[in-house]
Write a protein that binds this DNA or RNA. Structure first.
Lengths: 209, 209
DNA sequence: TCATTCAGTAAACAACTGTTTGCTGACTTT
DNA sequence: AAAGTCAGCAAACAGTTGTTTACTGAATGA
């Protein structure tokens, strides 16, 4: 077994990163299914053949990007859940965290939105599976809240899925804001907060049909 | 001005349709940004040059597909809204209509889901603009319901956007069901109904914070 | 020090791409 | 019946593509 750190491995990781960054950059303007090996290596400043020292093919690189993107997204979900239990505060915090996350990881989030239903099967499935995992985590967190007393596991999951779906759609809404109209961010935040509040009202009155 | 019907125009429309169908078929497995002119004409059984008698380029064909797809989707939205006012019935009806629509227009709906955040700007924008129009229509329909008494226009729109977003995500959930697991449709319907019910509970208790 | 490993390269492969050109022949108009 | 229109075609254009091959030379391990 070879060491993972050495001048050798370090160099390799560095050009691997260059490939991933080049791909991520190019993917801001196109889909993974139209991204070419030569295109990426050209952008990364290396020869086409070098690509195959790191990835089997483009779908392989895509799956790696999914893992990266979802790792940061996962951090965000945990950050939201770790907040206060009180509904109002939690909602404000959640929307702010999403807005900040999109601002700081634009390319990754765009990639996820674009490839979630995109034309590359393994990538699509990796995203779907991970979003399902998020929903499970959210459901588990909800179960710990006092407001969930008397809720069935099934209903908790359906609520969690509603939250995750809302999170995703809010994130993509932020994404679609043109660079020159940053004031739209405020409207998105306001609407998202109200929608979450409405859902939380529904949650509070769920039992008395 | 030439007649729109004549043996001439009829033939033209027919091969135009063949091109659109061929594209729609190929787009089940890839993104518009990777779809080639030659690929489409080959599938449609004609020569590459013929393509340009009908479309300026692929993005142009894509926008045409958006119009088609959204026309049928629009019909669906109207069908949902035209139902009974009573919440419970309306929810059941809405979910059934979505399920049926996805079953009957799979390729169109998949295309919309795939290109909504896809890499072809004009297509993306056409979809976004039309979804916004749907939200406006839903908001207008909501305004006519007695349950909306005392609601501001802004809140009605935020509720309508929540509904539209939920409709879209339900439709894509149906899409992702593998051909050999049709029993999953039932779970999706059940969850979607409960989520809509929860939202409608929130709506009913919205005013008393 | 010397042999080995291996990330990155240059070159070549056949196959593919979008688009333009001039043409043909069936339809349409006069 | 003659003249005109125009959808679809074959061929050619200059590129591009993914992938394999044999190679180089610096980092590694003995």
């Amino acid at each position: 077994m070879s060491h993972t750190s050495g001048a050798r491995q370090a160099q390799k990781q560095q050009t691997r990163r260059a490939l991933l960054d080049a791909a991520l950059h190019l993917l801001e303007g196109q889909n993974l299914s139209s991204l070419g090996v030569r295109e990426v290596t050209r952008e990364a400043g290396m020869s086409p053949a070098g690509f195959y020292r790191h990835f089997r093919d483009m779908a392989d690189l895509g799956v790696t990007l999914v893992e990266e993107s979802l790792a940061s997204l996962h951090g965000m979900v945990l950050a939201v859940l770790a907040g206060p239990d009180e509904a109002e505060e939690l909602i404000d915090r959640a929307v702010d965290v999403v807005a900040g996350h999109v601002r700081e990881h634009r390319a990754h989030i765009r990639f996820l939105a674009r490839e979630r239903h995109g034309g590359v099967r393994p990538v699509r499935e990796a995203i779907g599976a991970e979003l399902a995992r998020f929903a499970d985590e959210v459901a588990a967190a909800l179960a710990d809240q006092p407001a969930s007393a008397g809720w069935s596991a099934e209903d908790l999951l359906m609520l969690a899925e509603l939250y995750v779906e809302h999170l995703v759609s809010t994130a993509t809404a932020f994404l679609d804001v043109p660079e020159d109209r940053p004031e739209l961010d405020l409207r998105i935040s306001r609407v998202a907060r109200r929608q979450l509040r409405l859902i939380s009202v529904g949650r509070r009155h769920w039992r008395d049909s």
